[in-house]
Design a protein around this nucleic acid. Sequence first.
DNA 1: CGAGTGATTGACTTAGATCAATGACCGTGG
DNA 2: CCACGGTCATTGATCTAAGTCAATCACTCG
Lengths: 208, 208
Amino acid sequence: MRPSVGHAVTATEWISSTIRAAAIERKLEPGKALFHSGSKTVGLYEVLNGTVCLVRTDRSGRDAILQMASAGDTLAEASLFSSTYHCDAIAKTAATVRLYPKAVLLAELQRDPKIAQGFAAMLARQVMTLRTRLEQRNIHSARDRIRHFLAVNADPGGRTVSLSGTLKDIAAELGLTHEAFYRTLADMAADGEIERRRGMIRLKKSDL
Amino acid sequence: MRPSVGHAVTATEWISSTIRAAAIERKLEPGKALFHSGSKTVGLYEVLNGTVCLVRTDRSGRDAILQMASAGDTLAEASLFSSTYHCDAIAKTAATVRLYPKAVLLAELQRDPKIAQGFAAMLARQVMTLRTRLEQRNIHSARDRIRHFLAVNADPGGRTVSLSGTLKDIAAELGLTHEAFYRTLADMAADGEIERRRGMIRLKKSDL
DNA sequence: CGAGTGATTGACTTAGATCAATGACCGTGG
DNA sequence: CCACGGTCATTGATCTAAGTCAATCACTCG
């Protein structure tokens, strides 16, 4: 889930000083809940470290994970616009989060259109990258999925992709086991489709 | 890609009459481009029918699909906040789209915080459902993926899921072949985990 | 200098994709 | 009114790519 490439979708860019000032940090022990379904929404959370997951527990006892948020991710932004939460947030590991109180946030959005715009822009960008990721998951072949990833994340100029984070993380982001990922990368390199350098991959024109 | 369940994420709810008045419809023949990478952004598109896809073509000739938008989907919302497009939009089939001009849209967002709020809320909801969908794709087992789908889309009260659209569509939304989907549903029904009715599925408490 | 983790490769298994065929259910045009 | 073409729903048989288990090596960190 970690954004493993440059264009990180951090929450923080659009936040005004007023909002930042009102933020409240909170630490969570593993297993502890940040909020529960049905309780009143208090604001927008940003995960500073650790992992918090949103879980929908239905009456038949089944858990459905809606989101796993790690450092840098923002949590339950839709709750800003509804009065109660519709899922539980549980700390998967020890975690610390920052709360941006709803009242302050909404007031700021109301007051300064610039901020509202920034907020909307951030959300729009998130929608785009999420859609792209989702589209990627429609590709079944590991190789094609990796190709998609490389194409999407390629440095515009030099048909080169710089990898941030570990290969393992990227594999997870791609929805592949790290083994499958390593293997396929090795194959692609063997076929001369890519060239591997420390921390980056260079695309070589394969056909056409 | 079609929203196969009740809580459709339509773009239209937040749109003011001013915006609606300024909208422009446009028809596309299959294969025709709606816009190209690098050209100036003109606004937000909504797909009325047909399918339009966002494609990123890198210089090595590879195409990477960023999004397939069908009727009801909104297209390239992030472009609202940048001055040029960063991908191509190509009509996959004959399609008609509605353009909400950028200038009007941004002005409205600026002018009426209510509208800005509605817009942000729509985006936030989209982010949520997309994240949920993405989370679902991390589940490898077809059966568990279907369970996840059912759990997430279950009618809060009666542990029942009403299916809108064809089973085939839902299979696609789940990232499964329709065959795998049919089979797994059949198995689950045989195991008594679910009960199938015309257009809906009833969850039966499996364990615990 | 271990302990922990990432990177890599091997062997094996299986779940799901693929190809294929059939019946049910439209709508529609002659 | 009915035969026909189309799509959905379903099930069967087969095959393969990717998951799983497992081992090794390199590296970093305290």
